[in-house]
Amino acid sequence: DRMTSQEAACFPDIISGPQQTQKVFLFIRNRTLQLWLDNPKIQLTFEATLQQLEAPYNSDTVLVHRVHSYLERHGLINF
């Protein structure tokens, strides 16, 4: 699994950072998509996403918020 070119453009700090940071991003992105796909008729809020993310992935709330906002803005969740 890899970041898309659009994700890389929107998250230059992640793509240029350590490999582990990219893996954390990918986990948060994929898990958020999975959470929404589990029940697409219900809006997936940032707060609900954060509550359902497993530790330690829920510890970087800023990154979780950025990923959630990106997915929502680009019509990948909550459409």
Rank of each mutant, 00 (worst) to 15 (best):
Q22V: 13
N78M: 01
L26R: 08
G17T: 04
L71Y: 00
I15C: 14
I42T: 14
G17N: 04
A48Q: 14
R66W: 01
W36Q: 05
R66N: 08
V24Y: 08
E54A: 09
A48I: 07
T32D: 03
R66M: 05
T32R: 00
L76A: 07
Q43Y: 15
E54G: 14
Q22C: 07
I15K: 08
L33S: 05
V64A: 10
R2F: 06
T32A: 10
H65C: 11
Y57C: 06
R73N: 07
F25A: 03
E54L: 05
R66L: 03
P18G: 15
H68L: 04
I77D: 00
E47F: 06
V64G: 02
H68S: 03
C10E: 15
E54F: 06
Q43E: 14
T4A: 05
Q34D: 06
L76V: 11
D13T: 03
Q19K: 13
S5D: 14
L26M: 13
S5N: 08
F11K: 00
G17I: 01
N58G: 13
M3R: 02
L33D: 02
Q19L: 14
L76N: 06
S16Y: 09
A55L: 06
Q6I: 06
V62A: 14
T45N: 05
L33K: 09
R29A: 01
L53W: 02
M3Q: 01
S69M: 11
V24Q: 13
L44D: 01
F11C: 02
L26P: 01
A55I: 08
T49D: 00
H65M: 09
Q51E: 13
L35A: 09
D1L: 09
I77C: 00
L35S: 08
N39P: 02
A8Q: 14
Q43D: 10
S16H: 10
Y70T: 02
L37M: 14
R29C: 01
V67F: 01
I77T: 02
H65R: 12
S59M: 13
A8W: 07
F11H: 01
Y57G: 05
G75H: 12
F79C: 15
L37C: 11
I15P: 03
T45L: 02
T32H: 02
Q20L: 11
I14M: 05
I42F: 14
W36H: 09
S16E: 11
Q51N: 15
L63D: 01
A9V: 11
F25H: 01
Q52I: 10
D1E: 08
G17L: 06
I15F: 15
P18R: 08
Q22K: 10
N58T: 10
L37F: 14
A55T: 12
D60K: 07
F79G: 14
R2P: 05
E7R: 00
S69Q: 12
E47H: 10
E47A: 08
D60G: 04
P12R: 06
L35R: 06
T32F: 05
I77P: 02
T21P: 07
I15G: 10
N30D: 08
N58I: 04
Q6V: 09
L33V: 11
V67H: 01
L26G: 06
P40G: 08
T32V: 12
L71D: 01
R31W: 06
F25R: 00
R29H: 00
P18F: 06
T4K: 03
L76R: 10
H65L: 08
L50W: 05
L50G: 02
C10P: 00
K41E: 14
Q52H: 11
T49S: 06
L26A: 10
E54T: 09
I42K: 13
N30R: 08
L33E: 06
A8V: 12
Q43A: 12
Y57D: 01
T61I: 05
E72P: 00
H74K: 15
A48M: 10
N58C: 06
I28H: 02
L63E: 04
P18E: 12
Q51R: 14
Q20F: 15
S69R: 13
Q51A: 13
Y70E: 03
P12K: 07
I28M: 03
E7Q: 02
R31T: 08
G17Q: 06
T45H: 04
T32P: 00
A9G: 10
E47I: 08
F46A: 13
G75R: 11
H68W: 13
S59F: 15
L26F: 13
I14F: 03
N39G: 06
F46S: 09
E47W: 10
A55F: 13
L37Y: 12
F25D: 00
Y70R: 01
F79V: 11
R73M: 10
Q52F: 08
L71Q: 00
V67Q: 00
A8E: 15
Q34I: 05
L44R: 03
Q19D: 11
M3A: 03
V64I: 11
V67L: 05
A48T: 12
P18S: 14
Q6R: 11
H74R: 11
R2I: 15
L76Q: 07
D38K: 15
R73V: 13
N39E: 07
Y70G: 00
V62M: 09
T4N: 12
L26S: 10
R2D: 05
L35N: 03
T4F: 04
R66I: 00
Q6S: 11
S16N: 08
I42Q: 11
N30F: 03
P18W: 04
H74W: 05
E47Q: 12
Y57R: 02
F46Y: 10
S59E: 10
S69K: 10
R73L: 12
Q22D: 05
Q34L: 06
Q22A: 09
T4V: 03
S59T: 12
Y70H: 05
D1Q: 06
Q19W: 12
Q22P: 03
S59L: 11
Y57A: 06
S69W: 07
H65G: 14
R29Q: 00
S69V: 07
R31H: 11
P12T: 07
T61F: 08
K41R: 15
F46P: 14
N58H: 09
F25C: 01
G17H: 05
I77M: 02
V64N: 03
G75P: 00
F27D: 06
E54P: 11
V64H: 03
R73Q: 15
V64T: 05
P40L: 04
H65P: 01
T61P: 13
L44I: 07
A8F: 06
G75N: 13
V24G: 08
C10W: 10
Q20D: 09
N78D: 02
Q52R: 14
Q6M: 08
T49K: 01
F27M: 09
Q52K: 14
D38F: 05
E72W: 06
T32Q: 02
Y70W: 05
D60S: 07
A8Y: 06
D60V: 04
P18T: 11
N30Q: 08
Q20T: 09
A9M: 13
V62L: 12
E54Q: 15
L44M: 04
